[in-house]
Write a protein that binds this DNA or RNA. Sequence first.
DNA 1: GTCGCTATACTCAGTTTGAGCATATTTCGA
DNA 2: TCGAAATATGCTCAAACTGAGTATAGCGAC
Lengths: 338, 338
Amino acid sequence: MQRGPERTTARGQPFGDDGIPMIAPIIAPDEQPEPPPLHALQADLIAVLVAVSSGAPRVMTLEGGRALPSGPFELGHRSLQSGLRAWVERQTHHPLGYVEQLYTFADKDRGGEGGARTISISYLGLTREMSGGEGGWRSWYEYFPWEDHRAGVPPVIGGLVAPALAGWSAAAPSRAERDHRRQRAITAFGLDDQPWNEEMTLQRYELLYEAGLVPEAHRTATAADKTVPGTTMMGDHRRILATGVARLRAKIKYRPVVFELMPDTFTLLQLQRCVEALAGRTVHKQNFRRLMEQQELVEETGELTSEGIGRPAKLFRFRHAVLAERAFAGTKLPLARP
Amino acid sequence: MQRGPERTTARGQPFGDDGIPMIAPIIAPDEQPEPPPLHALQADLIAVLVAVSSGAPRVMTLEGGRALPSGPFELGHRSLQSGLRAWVERQTHHPLGYVEQLYTFADKDRGGEGGARTISISYLGLTREMSGGEGGWRSWYEYFPWEDHRAGVPPVIGGLVAPALAGWSAAAPSRAERDHRRQRAITAFGLDDQPWNEEMTLQRYELLYEAGLVPEAHRTATAADKTVPGTTMMGDHRRILATGVARLRAKIKYRPVVFELMPDTFTLLQLQRCVEALAGRTVHKQNFRRLMEQQELVEETGELTSEGIGRPAKLFRFRHAVLAERAFAGTKLPLARP
DNA sequence: GTCGCTATACTCAGTTTGAGCATATTTCGA
DNA sequence: TCGAAATATGCTCAAACTGAGTATAGCGAC
């Protein structure tokens, strides 16, 4: 949506998801009676850094694709977000553009042993540049092969996921629980002719986890035939990635964030392909451009593309002005007039 | 939306906003090389606890309405959420039902002096019960008088807010900055016949903060005539409250969370009044009930109300089944068929 | 019995949305 | 050179959705 810090809070700090400022304000700290500090507490910052290239949504990884960029929040950091930026830029040599917070957790079972507790704060970042460099960019469908429905329902669903989930449902201790599991599998994966909902990425991953169908669910090595394909990651990084995918898929529908992933000028088909890559499903071409035009999100540059086959397409650019003009918030209540 | 922990993650933990699990999973913690712990780090949990009664959306407060319930995250807490529940229940003697995370921040200017840093993790909680008890329930419109548009545009906007913002805009250092400020004020507050967007609660508060029109923006006491009416709070609690209001106003439109605030059975008018209280604006009655019926969110109990004036209304209850049946995620992309 | 109030049914036009048809330009290969 | 293949773009159409209004029903109070 914005390039750099365009939408900002009263303190000049950028807004994130749902209009929530990414950084905390400057407030006179004088009244709250602070309780004694907690020992051995630390905070980790974890980034889901996304770009789209050659038709695939890519995520920046480390350790041969097994980890997301992350690092501890340090005393020197001005804010959580600046701490994150510092770490990611050091680890990936890649500047961070748009950033929004995903989620914070601090489970007892995580973190170091002994009394230490780790708070994990995850972020979603979007970028256009693709320096390659570290070579850590991976298609997120390597991690979630069942999520790409652009070429129809992927065979892994009918072939592996559905039967495995059926077995898990059947193994439920009670009839009610069995029906509940079935229902959840059906809605999450669009079985039984239920519609596929691309935004349920996290629920699907969690369902597979609960059913023991992803290796992360086991503390010991598991037979490969008992799990569903897809690259695993350290700790719960794959779950954080699923959170980022779900958030981004939801967000592109009501906020113009796709443009963060596009070059300055682009054709409508390129834009469409980008959206399709993220959503994991195809879009009706004519309706897509109708939508783009009537929302006035883009404007023609006046130029045409020459590259590629077929009739040359008009080049467009994002209308940054809409960020100031419009509010971007869905209204679904039947409002009465004043 | 759900009562108690109905939608849960693979680890049996409840989902929060956007399907994000509220609690972190149980994962084998063995590979990540943990960096040295940060000294003097602590985490605060802050709750925006909401209920609706007698036509007003209420928030649980402490300290005579000047603070939100909060407390430190402690080693003994199983998770952030359970820590929050413990604190809130101890402070307010009020059980917590539906809970979702709002935002986490850790600004350098906040927290204790010296090297100590505080991470603030805020939550939104919804409840039906209204024990009164501590007497800490306040209408959130006490804090944001400009947010209640149920009886038309509140006079404080035309009388105070708009002129003050106009002055702030005029005082901008450059022409571009002046236009930008004007534009922001217009879209945020629905001036110049722009539509009012009730979801922009946070942006409005932040705008007033930036313009120096709320006392929190000043480190020293300010002349009352330079600020806009509305009860202030400690630190940035009012900003957190604004975040919660904005989140809830957005959420009631795409997830059936209103029912968390309703008694078990209710009339459609009661439900409508609850939505109106939260949204701060009125709703077209006939269309509202059409929406409720066609979405099959409620079912008749078969009984009628006798209390009150006018024709008795049918009583309804929330159809908990829809939580299992449906996915609840807006689709706004023009999707193609397979 | 009429008034004030709320409940509920129905209508209607304008807009949005999903889907398809048709035509215009290019490149590429036979 | 011509057509096939691929892309761009304009237009239509019906179903669904939405905002807003009209009409009628049932109840208590006076």
